[in-house]
């Protein structure tokens, strides 16, 4: 059935509906919102979409999303350049940055090894990572891929490749979330926590050291 608001409204609705997590009803609500907003506000949205596609690209060093190359993190001389934290996606990098705990560099893989989807290491930025480490000056690589089967598999693959280059490779910890209770933890979480237990240094809380 043709949309009573015309072709351009239908097109806008269809474009919104292509976005992740947006169904037909939500797309319609968003399209109505744009229709009812002022021309200035609607154009701000249009320009923001245009600009992000025009200006945003992958950093040639770490593959994070950036408008400058190298990105702000790679160019920041105040960061610890001896540590690289490897993540699957830029959104993982943003999550780690929000913690304020990490002051090293990053490497965004742009995915993970997913054999069931036919994704192998050549489709990721693995060679770029290996070359960065080979370039020297890197003492540690932290593998912060997701703690699921594909993330773990990607981490194991990277660890094998990186250890051959001769760098210290670590994996982010798994286990019981802070503030939760052992009584309510599942056996897989408890097992991970026990396997990943760490020595309590005298005079310091565990995990107190910062990169």
């Amino acid at each position: 059935m043709a949309d009573v608001y015309g072709d351009s409204f239908t097109r806008l609705k269809e474009e919104f509906a292509k976005m992740p997590g947006i169904g037909t009803k939500s797309a319609e609500r968003l399209a109505y919102h744009v229709l009812q907003s002022s021309p200035e506000d609607a154009m701000k949205l249009a320009y923001a979409i245009r600009d992000v596609k025009k200006n945003a690209r992958a950093c040639s060093t770490c593959h994070n999303v950036t408008e400058t190359d190298p990105c702000a993190i790679c160019s920041d001389t105040g960061r610890d350049r001896t540590v690289i934290c490897v993540v699957e996606q830029p959104r993982d990098l943003f999550s780690i940055e929000r913690t304020g705990e990490y002051r090293g560099l990053y490497h965004v893989l742009q995915g993970r090894i997913a054999p069931l989807e036919g994704v192998d290491s050549s489709q990721l930025t693995v060679d770029g990572l290996i070359n960065r480490v080979r370039g020297g000056g890197v003492a540690e690589v932290i593998l912060a891929t997701n703690p699921d089967l594909e993330g773990d598999g990607t981490a194991v693959f990277l660890a094998e490749r990186l250890e051959a280059v001769g760098v210290r490779v670590t994996r982010i910890a798994k286990g019981i979330p802070t503030g939760s209770q052992i009584e309510f933890a599942t056996h897989t979480i408890l097992r991970d926590a026990l396997r990943g237990r760490q020595r309590l240094p005298s005079g310091a809380a565990p995990g107190a050291s910062r990169a």
């Binding site: 054999p115 069931l116 089967l149 773990d152 598999g153 194991v156 693959f157 094998e160 599942t186 056996h187 897989t188 097992r191 396997r195």
Partner: peptide
């Protein structure tokens, strides 16, 4: 969860065999 196969997760060779089994 009864078993999440931690040894499979820690070896590329075992993991790739498990993916093949899955498919």
């Amino acid at each position: 969860v009864r078993e999440n196969y931690p040894t499979i997760r820690s070896s590329t060779q075992r993991l790739n065999a498990a993916y093949f089994l899955d498919e």
